[in-house]
């Protein structure tokens, strides 16, 4: 633009509280300080503890604990589960948000409520549902045994339970976004002759990408960290059906603090890395786009 302040700058200026509404910089400092204090007590301290305890007996012991075959199996299982669950739930989340955001149909509010269900229900119950369905005494138990299919105490059960617990994350992130963004751009694309797929990939997806990235990250974090539901269906078979959170518990109960905290630190690192990746992607794309 030629000259003068940009529209964004003016909008930002207008959205800030006026000088007179804030009593003094002292109050500002107090508020910032309070927020930091809470963060320190609730977030940083435990984080530090995790790493400190893990490294208590030196780096060697720390890395030694990852050489344990059970630990490696747990890490592998967790990654496999996340690798299956996250894409599936992403597709589901987009489909559900699309349906809710773009169409009017009977039972729409019912669907929204149902999507929220896994958040409301205790994860233990979520796990139990699958045990009741597919367990030896469950509804399909006999049939499954006859056909030699194991779901409970095996990978399918863990994947199912994790999927159930994490499926709201992408959808919850996208539904309000899609409702708010409206259909104008899609409709414009359609009148220009674009088909469904082209409209989705060139118009809708770019529109919702940040919401989607955020939803996927939340979904992934929860999928890797889920304890309750997985605990019920896994059967805690060491090296076979323990995911990282379960393995942490086992090690901890065995008083293997270094091992437990080492795995915990890895879990934490994975979460931190995903957050950093998200921020990086956001920052880089945002940077090139607005300049």
């Amino acid at each position: 633009m030629a000259s003068g302040p940009t529209k964004e700058m003016l909008a930002e200026l207008a959205s800030r509280p006026g000088r007179d509404t804030i009593v003094s910089t002292f109050i500002k400092a107090v508020f910032i300080g309070l927020s930091l204090l809470f963060l320190a007590a609730l977030l940083f301290a435990p984080l530090v503890t995790v790493f400190v305890t893990a490294l208590e007996k030196g780096y060697e012991m720390y890395f030694e604990s990852f050489r344990d075959s059970d630990t490696i199996a747990a890490i592998r299982l967790t990654l496999i589960t996340a690798a299956i669950v996250v894409p599936v739930n992403t597709v589901f989340g987009i489909a559900a948000a699309w349906a809710i955001g773009k169409f009017e149909f009977r039972g729409k509010s019912m669907l929204i409520t149902l999507i929220d269900l896994p958040i409301a229900v205790s994860p233990v119950i979520s796990g139990l549902i699958y045990v009741l369905l597919f367990g030896a005494q469950g509804w399909f138990g006999i049939w499954l045994q006859e056909h030699d299919i194991s779901i409970i105490y095996a990978l399918p059960g863990i994947v199912l339970a994790t999927m159930f617990v994490t499926f709201p994350y992408v959808a919850r992130e996208l539904i309000p976004l899609m409702q708010q963004l409206g259909n104008d751009e899609e409709e414009a694309a359609i009148t220009m002759g674009a088909g469904g797929l082209m409209t989705f990939f060139h118009v809708t997806l770019p529109k919702i990408r940040w919401g989607l990235v955020y939803g996927v990250i939340l979904c992934n974090a929860r999928a890797m960290g889920e304890f309750g539901a997985v605990s019920v269906v896994s059967g805690h078979i060491r090296g076979m059906t323990t995911t990282m959170p379960l393995h942490v518990e086992i090690l901890y109960n065995e008083y293997n603090f270094v091992g437990a905290f080492a795995v915990a630190s890895l879990l934490t690192l994975l979460a931190v890395v995903t957050l950093i990746v998200k921020t990086l992607v956001e920052w880089r794309t945002g940077y090139t786009r607005t300049k």
């Binding site: 104008d184 409709e187 009148t191 220009m192 002759g193 674009a194």
Partner: peptide
């Protein structure tokens, strides 16, 4: 709408 080939301005 895709086949009608009209131009639409919102």
């Amino acid at each position: 709408a895709r086949q009608r080939g009209v131009g639409l301005v919102f």
